[in-house]
Write a protein that binds this DNA or RNA. Sequence first.
DNA 1: TTGTGGATGTCGCCG
DNA 2: CGGCGACGTCCACAA
Lengths: 293, 293
Amino acid sequence: MTTSRSTQSVRAVTLERPTPTAARDAIADGLEREALVTVFGRCTVDYDGRASSQLAAGDRHVMLKPDGAALVHTDEGQQPVNWQPPGCAHDVFCEPVAGEDESDEPEADGSGSGSNSGNGNDSASSSDDVSDSDTDTDTATLVLESTRSTPEERLLVRFQNVLQVSTFAGTDEGELTLSGTEADLRDRILENPDLLESGFTPLATERDTPAGAIDIYGEDDAGRTVIVELKRRRVGPDAVSQLRRYVDALERDLHADTTLRGILVAPSVTERAQRLLGEHGLEFVSLEPTDSD
Amino acid sequence: MTTSRSTQSVRAVTLERPTPTAARDAIADGLEREALVTVFGRCTVDYDGRASSQLAAGDRHVMLKPDGAALVHTDEGQQPVNWQPPGCAHDVFCEPVAGEDESDEPEADGSGSGSNSGNGNDSASSSDDVSDSDTDTDTATLVLESTRSTPEERLLVRFQNVLQVSTFAGTDEGELTLSGTEADLRDRILENPDLLESGFTPLATERDTPAGAIDIYGEDDAGRTVIVELKRRRVGPDAVSQLRRYVDALERDLHADTTLRGILVAPSVTERAQRLLGEHGLEFVSLEPTDSD
DNA sequence: TTGTGGATGTCGCCG
DNA sequence: CGGCGACGTCCACAA
């Protein structure tokens, strides 16, 4: 039933249809080793924290990351149906009763067999493994719990059956390079200010105002102050409001008698945004983050 | 090496350290069967679409969902390092060369051994399996490709080695119930309008204005029109701007000679937002989405 | 820790 | 399909 392969070190360990206690031990071991742990099986999920949710039983894929993140995925959607952010403490244990009792509380009695904070402090899991009672294999329920504070949040996954448990030890030094971002659009304009407007001179980026930081602050060929707000993609009313806030704030801040120019730079704008721009005397320049080859 | 268990039907199939061609066949089979497919191994990832990215080699967990979603997870972070939204067509094949050639293009020569659109139309994968050449097992590279159009996007995952391939067949009818949302906050006020302010009378929700829909539209005990914007959590300047847009739009729309009242309802506001509220004559009422027990 | 705004945001609703 | 706004948004960065 257990199948583990090792070449140099054990990189991946997989159990298929393990008993709850076997699953618990494998998962606890994986958490201990700072491995990435996955569990697939029929489960219910309960969350309580910033909001609260309950999810009826279904087959799902659960991932526990060594940084404390937890993800519950169904067979649909890009987003997990439930999750927990990095920095959480994962715990795994078996509950004696598999049934329909209503009490959500697994009784914080320290019976967790594996505890793992996002900081890698493996405290309180050195000698208490022995105290874990192997409740009846057939009736026990595997439970995953992931908690954090600030804000207080708890995720509880109860498995009715477990089809697979895997632990993966890996390394990932690979860096992600990404292009087509707002930063690329900014750099593009800084390198060639005429793309915005002939005679435009950038003076600062991230210039602070009482309302926030201006993406690009500069002046036009007539010496008028220009405030530029950048968006990497087509924008709606929110971006116009954002630009307006900056223009308003800077006008007050500088006690400007002359009107400042506000320019929204994006590939395109929606109609409503276009109208808002006009209402507030703001301008629009169409530019994409990267040169369209 | 292959370990598959079946109880009633095959629910989960797992290969450990498969050859590239074995991995390819198992994945293609999983996609065919509309299963959830996972692959763990050392890989590079390239994305091109709304933006474009390259990710150097590292150990990652890749999930292909039957609805066309693809997720590439490292051992850190709640978010995938790369992904593809639902509706994509997944493909899997082996490239003959494992090396360092620069060409990103796998040559759209129809050599894909498994193709799966999000709509479940398993076209073009009935009889072409035989034509897949089993390129040299030791030098072949497993490649996952996930593409879509509108916008045109492509994700390419190349595996230097595969530690595990799994396919999961499951069902998930479970419904998620969530509380603590903005809708809960709205209902709370509609049930007890005095929570907002003594004498408040809600008249409509989602009332349309040229600037968008107002969360709650009503009037106070003096008959003045009230525009309410709801937020489930502490808010910043963006929410104030949003409320302001609605108030402005409705004032114009109604040619209102009397000033409309705009009230932001949220658990709390940041200082900058507070100041913005004051500058624009808007009000704030502190309320949480659910009764604090 | 909190504030602020970007994101290949994703997702649902509606025109 | 595009617009629009919510989201347990997540996330990096600055104060």
